[in-house]
Design a protein around this nucleic acid. Structure first.
Ligand code: MN
Ligand code: MN
Ligand code: MN
Ligand code: MN
Lengths: 222, 222
DNA sequence: ATTGAATTTTAGGCATGACTAATATAACAC
DNA sequence: GTGTTATATTAGTCATGCCTAAAATTCAAT
């Protein structure tokens, strides 16, 4: 059993399969093409290779799945990514919307030593600035509070944002200005046709559904 | 005039040409092949491309030279590399012999934002842990004290190490154990056939010529 | 069951950046 | 000057990872 180091592309494929699997039941070739910003034939080719390496399994028209080994690698890359995001924010004064892009490149390039160094420095954090869980050093996903998308919450009450499900710079920068960030306590006023009305630190907003559905909150039963 | 981002390979070629030029009068295709650890035909091919991009000039059997533009890029990469080395040593607890390898990969991947962030954090340093000058943000080489290789120094006197001319991990780790690092004051005892006899912090060594010639010292005229 | 649409794969190409084997050219020693 | 050696180039391959155009397959709706 060799360990021939994967290419950046291959690492991104595995990582993306993992992330898509977290959301959807099944991961299609097209999903991958969309997320990775390549054409479908490229996905076919790469998946074929990853299959041959026993990193993924593929049932045509049914979906792609990671093998044990493939998942380990995906988690390794994800750990790099999320540790880096937090590090850039905390230690290098990156703003909320800048960290993803930089981490996307660095994740493939840092050594295990680098990973360990920043993890130590930050006291082995469990979540990144977007609320995404950071896999532990032995590649387990840390426990997270159970979360639900903002539009699914009923009643009028006070809740806490746990995670934002986007990496889009424009949306992130908007969320930041609206103080819609993980850890923030918000008051649920009313679920209206156009969006969710909330109060945050005194001021009231109507958060459009397109945005509200990206905001997942701690699901404290009333 | 486009700015199509160079590949890591191309950046390494430019950087290596610059570094070789600092030492030797002329830079041959073979020098490059050796340093970059590729075969000569690969160099021919790449140099041809870099010529077409107006980043280098090449007179066969005479040598390779950077153009203005090529040199700017080389300095940019070199700045990344040396800032990173210092950063890894200072902020992430890397040892002297580990920094080069990591910086070699990171240098191609960090953004200008990252560069500026670590430069700020370290108060715009002028030299890396090996004593190599760090090009400034506007890509000038900072003034360094005039240095000379240890074996070339005459007389018996006290001098200060300014720079070590190697990136070899084994040699670096040796130098570190012997306290032969930039900033270190050493006492020149005698230039012998086998090497240079010196006293450092009380103890005496015979530094073999193969190593001594890598140690450049501030040339304080007696 | 049939048909039309969506999904996926095949076929064929292209750019990069390496390689080996063979050839050409310059430099140098006599 | 000639011949030998070091240096450089050419020619031809290969692996990656992407692409477009076209064909195949499955799904879904009637
Ligand atoms: Mn990536
Ligand atoms: Mn994140
Ligand atoms: Mn490099
Ligand atoms: Mn250095």
């Amino acid at each position: 059993m060799e360990k021939p180091r994967l290419s950046e592309s291959q690492e991104d494929y595995l990582k993306e399969i993992f992330k898509l699997r977290e959301m959807n039941e099944t991961v299609s070739m097209q999903d991958l093409a969309r997320k990775l910003d390549v054409r479908p034939p490229s996905v076919t080719g790469m998946i074929k290779k990853l299959c041959a390496m026993n990193l993924v399994e593929h049932e045509p028209y049914k979906g792609v799945q990671l093998t044990e080994t493939g998942e380990k690698i995906a988690l390794e890359v994800l750990r790099h990514h999320r540790l880096l995001e937090l590090y850039l924010a905390r230690h290098l004064n990156y703003s909320w919307d800048e960290i993803h892009e930089e981490a996307e490149r660095l994740e493939h390039v840092i050594s295990e030593k680098f990973e360990a160094a920043i993890a130590d420095l930050m006291d082995h954090p469990t979540h990144d600035p977007h609320g995404d869980p950071i896999p532990t050093a032995d590649l387990e996903i840390p426990d997270s509070p159970s979360l639900a998308p903002l539009p699914s919450l009923k009643g009028t009450r006070s809740i806490v944002i746990g995670r934002v499900m986007t990496q889009d710079r424009d949306i992130l920068s908007l969320l930041f200005r609206l103080e819609l960030t993980p850890g923030q306590e918000i008051e649920l006023i009313k679920n209206e046709a156009a969006g969710i009305r909330v109060r945050i630190n005194g001021s009231q907003y109507l958060v459009p559904h397109s945005i509200a559905r990206l905001i997942w909150c701690e699901n404290t039963e009333t």
